[in-house]
Simulated scan of single mutants.
Amino acid sequence: MKEKGKTSNFKFSVYMKRYWQLYVMLLLPLTYLLVFKYAPMVYVQIAFKKYSLVESIWKLPVAANHGFEYFIKAFKTNDFKYALRNTLTLNLLDLFLGFPAPIIFALILNELCFARYKKVVQTIAYMPHFLSWVIIYSLALQLLAPNDGLVNMVIQDLGGKAIPFLNEEGHWIGSYIGFGIWQNFGWGSIVYLASIAGINPELYEAAAVDGAGRFRKMWHITLPGIKPTIVVLLIMSLGNILGGGFDRPFAFQNNLVMRVADVIPTFVYRVGIKGLQFSLTTAVGLFQSVVGVFFLLMANFISRKLGERGIW
Score class of each variant (00 low, 15 high):
L22K: 10
P40H: 00
L234G: 12
L242N: 08
S279A: 11
F12K: 06
I163V: 15
G98I: 12
R270M: 12
K81F: 12
G159C: 00
T282W: 10
Q45K: 03
A212Y: 04
I155F: 04
W133F: 09
T229D: 14
G239V: 05
V62W: 15
E202N: 09
L28E: 00
F114G: 01
M127T: 14
F165S: 08
V271G: 00
L93Q: 00
L141S: 06
T123E: 07
D148V: 10
P265N: 11
V134T: 10
L131R: 15
I104K: 04
V271D: 01
G239S: 08
P29F: 08
G239M: 01
F295H: 00
K81D: 11
M236K: 08
L286S: 11
I311D: 09
M153R: 14
I181T: 01
R309P: 01
L256C: 10
L93R: 03
V134D: 07
L286Y: 14
R248L: 10
N91C: 04
L109R: 01
V263Q: 03
A145S: 03
A207P: 12
P146Y: 03
L141P: 02
G272F: 02
R270W: 05
F12C: 00
G98L: 11
Q45G: 01
R304P: 07
F105C: 10
L144G: 04
A63Y: 15
L112W: 05
F278I: 06
M25G: 08
L84G: 11
M258W: 01
F252R: 08
N152P: 07
D148Q: 15
I199A: 11
A115M: 02
V293N: 06
V290K: 10
V44P: 04
Y269C: 05
F250V: 09
P29D: 06
I177A: 06
H220F: 05
I221T: 07
I46S: 01
Y23F: 13
F114I: 09
P102F: 06
A101K: 02
L256H: 11
F267D: 02
R309V: 11
W219P: 00
W219G: 05
L158C: 12
R214A: 04
V35Q: 03
A261Y: 03
Y192N: 05
F68N: 08
W182P: 13
L26P: 01
A64D: 15
L158A: 09
A206P: 01
V268S: 03
F246S: 04
V291A: 13
A106F: 05
